[in-house]
Write a protein that binds this DNA or RNA. Structure first.
Lengths: 344, 344
DNA sequence: CTGTTAGCGCATTCAA
DNA sequence: TTGAATGCGCTAACAG
């Protein structure tokens, strides 16, 4: 009757049981043992162990104005890229004893907006977001209120926000180089629509132009396909049956890759006999596919880790810059690129 | 100079600006307009809009003893199964305006334990966990403190906790039935080690025995492989080169499937000529693989949705049972199962 | 219809 | 070395 329900155990209860005052318990909890007798210290510890007391983080947060929680808003949680990054963020944050609230914007600016608002109300200490780009005012609001913010994967122009992303130029360049060295001259790139703010698509296409020129290859405009997923198969079919079709194709991401492979299956095309293929994103089945697929692996874990690191530093007030960090990809050479016999 | 920094805007500030008292603003925010003049109501609304005020959820949580946040602890966030479930949980929770903190236990009981403690301190309203099984005391503690808890994917025996998982028996039975109807009699199953608490593996093997008997097929003990991932390839090779090798193989999950496909590639075996194959888990490349792969798709989204629904109901005190819900899988028939010519 | 009051559980001066 | 007092921002009676 006298014993409170254990879930409502509070600091006062512990203090009472240990015959000390609340503040002493508080000091104990925060490791300020300096001015505390060994005796009271042990006493408090014993009571805490016996009761299984643990301090109420909500109350603490209210007091110290810090929740030790960050919000992560991913564009689409179903992408392996996202989950790998989330995992890395989690790991980094666990080290720092901060929690992560993951929100899935589902590529929907409205959802993103809603989540940013909700997380602000929840007083998160900072944000990591894969920005849709359609909520500039929200991003600005965060900056204005001095809430630390880091963007991942996408750059929002004209906004001075720390950003970590793949070095898309390098990724494309690596692929083009591999193709060029294997003797290919007619190279195509297939991506999803390069709409504003979707940096990876934008940069991969831009990088493609640059790299083609660098390796002295002539680019054909119709060898750049940027279409919605459900149109990619027919576009590829069209390109392949046109004049001077490409002998090498660069798939812009894992989803595009799947469409290309589907097209092959449906049209009876074979890799690498009919065309060589490299994909950005190292898919799980890259090894077992026949032929195994040469890929450009994104450093997802590193991107997540770096992003978390930058955010945590900003939260601690250790940095104050607005760098854009580009992480290098890795080429995983397998069997989907064929050496072309020189025709001279 | 008189204007406070916007991020510190509080209810009192709003009240002051609107010439009303705090409690009136509070009422407004909680939608209790009944006893409020249209005038004050409009006034408050205007001030809120102008200032961009949003209430501090932390303070509110402290007061109402409810955080509108649940904790989700997944065994391993890298599994597609997990991310699909997380996404479904998210969606369901967003509807109910509750937030989700996702933690990745990484199949490590220690991490699981740490997360449960941390989330309890954070006063989450409930838990959804893919239990490792090694923290029974923690699960019991949650029950004891009346913190709503739902298990996903794995059953912890002797613990009366609501659980939602795949109907593993049905999944296996579907596969065996397909094989049997195609004329196969020598069928094998390959899974990861069936250690305690890992319900899917346990039930899939048990179900395999049951189904084989149901379809009048004789089971060979050496046609059950339950080994760590890195041993699966050699075990399969061994089984296939032994006497009376299976003509059909059931892969216990996506990871096992990858190992089996790798084995095929390395040993030059072909599907479905050398053996037929069905996998539990519908992988992204099922269609593009040659031949396309027949799979048993887990209802991940439904499992997540149902789990969230049950938890939210428990939180609201609407239910008080301890059901185990098994969700039915779906057969996706493709080309990796070969009809065997009758040999009579 | 609106304002006053009294905490929620904790951290933090400031005295003792 | 410890304790009493104060307030974080909000809700919820209860008065008015």
């Amino acid at each position: 009757m006298t014993k409170k329900h254990s879930s409502h155990l509070t600091m006062s209860d512990v203090a009472k049981k240990a015959n000390v005052s609340k503040s002493t318990v508080s000091q104990y909890l925060n490791g300020r043992y300096e001015f505390m007798s060994k005796k009271t210290r042990d006493m408090i510890q014993r009571v805490i162990e016996e009761t299984g007391y643990s301090p109420n983080v909500v109350a603490r947060s209210l007091k110290v104005k810090k929740t030790s929680t960050i919000g992560v808003i991913v564009a689409n949680i179903l992408h392996k890229f996202s989950t790998e990054i989330i995992r890395a963020i989690e790991d980094a944050c666990m080290e720092a004893d901060v929690h992560v609230i993951v929100c899935n914007a589902d590529d929907d600016p409205e959802k993103e907006r809603k989540y940013i608002k909700a997380l602000m109300a929840k007083q998160v200490d900072g944000f990591i977001v894969f920005p849709t780009g359609d909520n500039i005012d929200m991003y600005e609001l965060l900056e204005e209120r001095n809430i630390p913010l880091v963007f991942l994967d996408r750059i929002i122009p004209d906004l001075a926000v720390n950003t970590v992303l793949l070095d898309n130029f390098k990724a494309v360049d690596t692929a083009v180089q591999v193709f060029a060295q294997a003797g290919h001259t007619r190279i195509a790139i297939v991506t999803m629509p390069a709409t504003a703010y979707v940096t990876p698509r934008l940069e991969r296409i831009e990088g493609f132009r640059i790299s083609m020129e660098r390796y002295g290859l002539e680019m054909q405009e119709n060898h750049i396909i940027d279409q919605p997923l459900d149109r990619i198969q027919q576009e590829v079919t069209g390109m392949m049956s046109g004049p001077a079709p490409p002998t090498a194709v660069l798939a812009g991401n894992d989803l595009v890759l799947l469409e290309i492979l589907n097209e092959c299956k449906n049209s009876g095309r074979h890799i690498p006999e009919d065309f060589s293929l490299i994909s950005i994103d190292d898919v799980s089945y890259a090894n077992v596919y026949q032929p195994s697929l040469t890929t450009i692996k994104q450093p997802s874990a590193e991107i997540g880790e770096k992003g978390a690191e930058v955010l945590l530093q900003k939260i601690r007030g250790e940095i104050n810059d607005q760098q854009i960090v580009r992480m290098a990809p890795t080429l995983i050479a397998r069997e989907s690129v064929k050496e072309l016999i020189e025709e001279n």
